[in-house]
Design a protein around this nucleic acid. Structure first.
Length: 893
RNA sequence: GGGCGCUUAGCUCAGCUGGUUAGAGCGUCUCGUUUACACCGAGAAGGCCGGGGGUUCGAGCCCCUCAGCGCCCACCA
């Protein structure tokens, strides 16, 4: 156990570099990051998991925010006496990581890494990179002070997670939810892989819209920005009610546009066509447009099929089917050539410049081509045999009624507006393309032998089975993260105890990618929600509001910030000014402000610990003076408020409330008063005990936000257990909020401030000795607090009286009905002083009459709640008293 | 095209289900070498809460409308 350290080892300025590593190491050694080792009875569990950072690089400031949030929450819950598990982990980030490493290899001079290295060689390279990145990340997480259980460290690509992924895949396949199908996919030519709908980024681009006919005898004009795809058209769709085209519906026209075979274009009716747009007719290319493919499927279902002709290949070039003139050309070349041909045959009617949204691959950056391929899909609408509902139904239930209508199985999203966004997305969800043609990832557990296919956790018995070369979308593994990290598919103790997890935090940018899939997976596999509460935060931007990114070179390394300012300062700076779901900006000033606050806390501690006679823990503090009563009452109020704010996930307001108490009340007033009380034998009685009592508990309240400095100070109390496992202040051990003491002390504060104000206004030399005269009908408070008032207001003598008297050379003010006079011979200009007081009296009178007007309003008095009316009456009394005092002061001038 | 968010002090932002004369941090100005802290102390200035309309005894907060900024979704071919 740590022995009490002498406070003399506390330097004037807190130096985080001197303490952070050692403190973190001590936490690690204590074992308290693990729920299994926590001291005391802990009936309730609390679990949250990392949104696992991608091993594509190092952590940035956004991760610092995430770590700060989840660690603050975990520490708070631990202090509240819960059995806390914060699960750390990283994400192999299949496609992003492979894309990144391929890019690096190409930069190093390799032309085609996949070809040159082969599957195993490339995977080895990626693994090397990922491991490097992973260990850097885990190091950074430690630097950020995160109190996660390292014994449960997980990785989306480790053996345990691979078991979970395979198991999940096989169950879904057995339930008929996963199928292999020939459909239009999002294809990245550069990446030579599919991607999901969620990983496409739409970019605005200028494009040309061509209006043309397939041939001179074709009756309908169509338009397209991709005329080269028209070489694969097999239909023209029109609105069923469009009178212009009624007579053509159902007919087929043969046109020769230069494709390998003449095109058979069937005129079909489709509700989705907007008759008002363009010509009201849409050339249908089932092979190269998801919408057209949907029409193709619809026609098939209607037994009125149309053909599907792929004219663009996986290499991004035109296929044989596009015709001898086009085969082998890039799409751009083919487009140009086709437009020339249309023009030459007088088929081109119009050519307009438009702005178009083009889907691009968010990792490879190239334009996504729609290409039909056989891939693995997850059906979100098919009914799950044992459940009688679809994945979509489950995803909907999870945030509305709770799974199976059970409110206990409900996810609550904060802020609520994201629930709406989520639901809207759920309703429009399409089948999820699961397979990727990259190598870094969980390989699809399907094996082929000739025409036979088997899906299973293990390879089938016998010779000649070849595993599917494709890998799974990375979100398939991260979707199962809340339970795969707890041991699923094994029915572990962890799973029983910690799932559903209690809470999770994440940025809104992964709401669809991750939150949604976690709900899907967990609802399917466990019939449970993955977490009860989801706290959604915004993006941390730079000071100009721009997103941090490598390409714009505005990145800030959190470790450098920590080295310069300390981890606590970083944590505060990112948490102090956020509100749920909203973006925030990072400023150097903010981190300085955080650093200053940490240093303030350090110096408050330094003062208390060095000035008290005996550093010890104080179980109960007894107030002897008004200031004592005030600070204890305030501390109770603050504790209650901070607790409530934590429960509401209002981290930023919690820090504000704490900061205000710490700096503006405890430090600025009580510490100064403590000095006075100690110097006076009549007052000193309990000052030390109260200082220690408040400091000890204040360290606890601050611990979630500034874990290092608070733990470092805590050592000096010589307690058996470190701060991280101390109890949160119990309301029962604190005094009851004492409104009377707070009000009385506030009057003293106002009196002191008024005197300071007058001194500043009249530019009284600091060295000049002044005396203070307070005229009041109820002199008791001022008389009792005279010592404190004299010291804090820096006045030599204090006279309290009840009768008025002329004071021509005095500066004056009114505080809570009391008249305050500061005789300042030679400094006070009687005329100016009169004007000042008159102005004040006027504004006071205006205020009184505004209050009186409200109170005279019968409707207000009858309709407003009694408390509001009473409040208003009290205010009127106070304001009237102030006005009366000012009037009397004017007489005394 | 649909949806969401934002617009409050010079800057960055709070402001819970409508109820004081609207708050904080930073910045600015004035003063200060007080034995916890200059990473500090004391004091001050600074806001028709984007515009307009409405509901209400009462609106920064609710409703309508307009404007600007940002984001998400759909992609009109």
């Amino acid at each position: 156990m740590p022995s009490p350290q002498l406070p003399s080892d506390m330097p004037k300025a807190y130096d985080p570099a001197q303490v952070e590593d050692a403190v973190y190491q001590a936490w690690l050694d204590s074992g308290y990051f693990s729920p299994d080792n926590l001291p005391g009875e802990r009936a309730e569990s609390f679990c949250t998991v990392f949104p696992p950072p991608n091993v594509t690089g190092v952590l940035h400031l956004g991760h610092a925010l995430e770590n700060a949030l989840m660690d603050a929450m975990a520490r708070y819950q631990r202090l509240r006496g819960k059995k806390v598990l914060l699960v750390p982990g990283t994400d192999h980030a299949a496609l992003p990581t492979q894309a990144k490493v391929e890019k690096l290899l190409i930069k190093e001079g390799m032309e085609n890494p996949r070809k040159e290295l082969g599957r195993e060689g490339l995977v080895a390279k990626i693994r090397e990179f990922a491991e490097q990145s992973r260990s850097t990340i885990l190091n950074q997480v430690q630097k950020m002070g995160t109190s996660c259980d390292w014994s449960r460290l997980a990785y989306t690509f480790d053996d345990q997670r691979n078991v979970a992924v395979k198991e999940l895949f096989c169950r879904m396949y057995a339930d008929g939810l996963i199928y292999r199908g020939y459909r239009v996919v999002n294809w990245s030519v550069k990446g030579q892989s599919t991607s999901s709908d969620d990983e496409i980024e739409y970019v605005e681009r200028p494009a040309k819209l061509y209006t043309f006919k397939y041939g001179p005898d074709f009756p309908i004009t169509i338009a397209s920005t991709r005329p080269e795809t028209k070489l694969g058209d097999t239909a023209v769709a029109v609105h069923p009610a469009d009178v212009r085209y009624q007579s053509y519906i159902g007919k087929t026209f043969t046109v020769d546009v230069g494709a390998l075979k003449p095109l058979e274009i069937k005129i079909i009716a489709d509700e989705g066509v907007d008759p008002a747009f363009g010509t009201g007719a849409l050339g249908v290319t089932p092979a190269h447009s998801p919408i057209d493919f949907a029409m193709y499927e619809k026609q098939k279902a209607k037994s009125d099929p149309i053909a599907l002709i792929p004219v663009i290949g996986q290499d991004g070039r035109m296929t044989e089917a596009a015709g001898p003139a086009y085969a082998g050309l890039t799409t751009e070349e083919a487009r140009e050539k086709f437009v020339v041909w249309l023009s030459a045959h007088s088929l081109l009617e119009k050519e307009e410049e438009i702005v178009q949204n083009v889907g691009t691959s968010d990792r490879y950056g190239d334009v996504i081509e729609a290409i039909p391929m056989t891939q693995w899909w997850l059906d979100v609408t098919k009914v799950i045999p044992s459940r009688g509902k679809s994945l979509r139904d489950l995803m909907r239930e999870a945030v509305t009624t709770g799974l199976d209508g059970d409110p206990a199985k409900k996810v609550t999203i904060t802020p609520d507006r994201f629930t709406k966004m989520y639901l809207e997305r759920v309703e429009n969800l399409r089948d999820w393309c699961l397979s990727r043609q990259i190598w870094w990832g969980h390989r699809i557990p399907a094996w082929y032998h000739g025409d036979e296919m088997r899906v299973g956790v293990e390879a089938p018995e016998g010779e000649g089975w070849e595993q599917d070369p494709d890998t799974l979308d990375t979100w398939f593994s991260s979707g199962s993260w809340t339970f795969s990290t707890l041991g699923w598919p094994n029915q572990t103790q962890d799973l029983k105890e910690f799932h559903p997890t209690t809470w999770i935090q994440m940025g809104y940018e992964i709401l669809y990618l991750w939150l949604m899939r976690m709900i899907l997976m967990s609802a399917y596999a466990l019939e449970e929600v993955p977490f009860k509460d989801a706290y959604i935060h915004g993006i941390l931007r730079d000071q100009h509001g721009k997103k941090f990114s490598k390409s714009s070179g505005n990145g800030i390394d959190p470790i450098e910030v920590i080295n310069q300012y300390g981890c606590d300062a970083l944590r505060l700076s990112v948490m102090m000014s956020i509100s749920p779901g909203n973006d925030s900006r990072y400023y150097t000033e903010k981190i300085e402000s955080g650093r200053n606050l940490v240093n303030k806390m350090w110096n408050i501690s330094r003062f208390v610990l060095t000035s008290v006679e005996d550093v010890k823990r104080v179980e109960q503090a007894e107030a002897k003076t008004l200031a004592d009563r005030w600070i204890l009452s305030r501390f109770s109020g603050v504790t209650e408020k901070v607790t409530m704010l934590f429960e509401r996930y209002d981290f930023s307001l919690a820090t504000e409330v704490l900061r205000d108490f710490t700096w503006n009340e405890f430090a600025d007033w009580y510490l100064e008063i403590a000095k006075i009380q100690r110097a006076n034998p009549d007052l000193q009685k309990n000052t030390d005990a109260i200082l220690l009592f408040v400091l000890e508990r204040l360290l606890v309240l601050w611990h979630p936000f500034m874990p290092f400095v608070t733990e470092e100070v805590w050592k000096r109390f010589g307690a058996d257990l470190p701060l991280i496992v101390q109890p949160w202040p119990e309301t029962s051990t604190l005094v009851r909020p004492d409104a009377e003491a707070e009000a009385a002390f506030e009057t003293v504060q106002q009196l002191v401030t008024a005197v300071r104000n007058l001194r500043a206004e009249y530019k009284v030399e600091p060295s000049r000795e002044v005396s203070l005269i307070v005229q009041t009908n109820s002199p008791a408070l001022v008389e009792e607090q005279a010592e404190i008032i004299r010291h804090l207001a820096r006045v030599g003598s204090l006279e309290v009286r009840t009768e008025g008297e002329k004071l021509p050379d005095a500066a004056s003010a009114v505080v809570g009905g009391m008249q305050v006079y500061l005789p300042l011979a030679g400094l006070v200009d009687a005329i100016k002083e009169r004007q000042r007081l008159e102005k004040e009296l006027e504004s006071a009178a205006t205020y009184v009459s505004s209050l009186e007007a409200k109170l005279a309003n019968a409707e207000f008095v009858s309709k407003a709640p009694a408390s509001v009316v009473d409040d208003m009456r009290r205010k009127r009394e106070e304001a009237a008293a102030k006005a009366a005092a000012l009037a009397e002061q004017l007489k005394n001038l």
